[in-house]
């Protein structure tokens, strides 16, 4: 029982981390209809920036803020200088551009920080948690806390603020949104800022959780999160979050108990195929 609970809590944590990456991806897809593969590179960059600032200053909060800012900057630059000029072409053109960016950013990280795995030995200012049979390490508590805060923030922003209304309107009909006085190019940039800083948070959390930061850490998330936003329903942020948490749990439990001979990372794609056969629009997608 204890082991099961522990596995479940770890699974949810993994799912939460997936959710932080996929929600940004879903936001970007919603507004530009681009599969932003390079989002995973932003996530890796976030981990590096966070680790860099943390090892210089020893201040985790500062590391988080700087990393979010750096990732936002790169995200907006990608949108302005790569995606925007490519939007007039068929969707596979920006997709190819995005793949090139993913590989390019990975190489830059390798050149700057070296091809090895860096440890991220962060001192976490959060206590652990004990309740009956449940034990959560400080790292785990941090993952839960941060994710809940970020996801609540995203929900609040998109449903309770005027900016959120403008973002949702723009993702449904960007031309009409513009005709109502919404500065849609600013809305697009804002979307990239929100998505990229969320990815930065995810990168730092993963770095601390696994105590690993390395150049290709975005490679597996790059395709796994694509599968997740398809499962969730393209462009649907709640769908992406739901799919992420479900995948995190099932990956962890299946590997822990079923002892299946499949690599863990294949599960997302099996789920994608199954869901698409049953619900082609995804879990929470619109038809």
């Amino acid at each position: 029982m204890d082991l099961f609970l522990e596995q479940l809590l770890n699974g949810i944590a993994i799912g939460f981390i997936y959710a932080l990456i996929t929600s940004g991806l879903a936001l970007v897809y919603g507004i530009l209809r681009i599969l932003h593969v390079a989002h995973a590179a932003i996530y890796a960059l976030g981990a590096y920036a966070g680790l860099g600032i943390y090892s210089i200053t020893g201040n985790l909060f500062l590391a988080l803020i700087v990393s979010m800012a750096a990732c936002s900057l790169v995200g907006v630059a990608i949108e302005k200088f790569v995606y925007f000029p490519l939007l007039k072409y068929p969707p596979y053109v920006p997709l190819i551009g995005s793949i090139a960016l993913l590989l390019g950013i990975e190489e830059v990280l390798r050149l700057v920080a070296g091809p090895y795995i860096h440890a991220f030995p962060a001192e976490i200012p959060v206590p652990g948690f004990h309740f009956g049979p449940i034990t959560m390490s400080p790292v785990l508590v941090t993952v839960y806390l941060v994710t809940v805060i970020v996801l609540f923030g995203l929900w609040f922003l998109s449903t309770r603020t005027e900016l959120g209304l403008a973002m949702r309107a723009s993702s449904q009909d960007i031309q009409i949104a513009g005709s109502l006085g919404i500065n849609t190019s600013r809305i697009i940039s804002t979307t990239f800022i929100i998505g990229s800083s969320t990815a930065a948070v995810a990168g730092i959390l993963v770095g601390i959780y696994f105590n690993q930061v390395y150049p290709t850490m975005g490679a597996v998330p790059a395709y796994k999160t694509l599968a997740l936003i398809v499962v969730g329903g393209l462009g649907s942020v709640p769908g992406a979050v739901l799919a992420s948490v479900l995948l995190g749990i099932s990956e962890t439990l299946l590997i822990g108990y079923a002892n299946i001979p499949l690599p863990r990372d294949a599960l997302a794609f099996i789920a994608m195929i199954a869901v698409l056969m049953w619900r082609p629009q995804g879990l929470l997608g619109r038809r």
């Binding site: 005027e162 209304l165 403008a166 949702r168 309107a169 009409i176 005709s179 006085g181 619109r286």
Partner: peptide
């Protein structure tokens, strides 16, 4: 616009409120 082009996934009130963007 031609064909109304309302925002399908927003409520009626939210649709109206998009017309007041930055004017509230």
């Amino acid at each position: 616009p031609e064909g109304a082009r309302v925002f399908p996934q927003l409520t009626v009130l939210e649709n109206i409120m998009t017309g007041l963007y930055r004017l509230r």
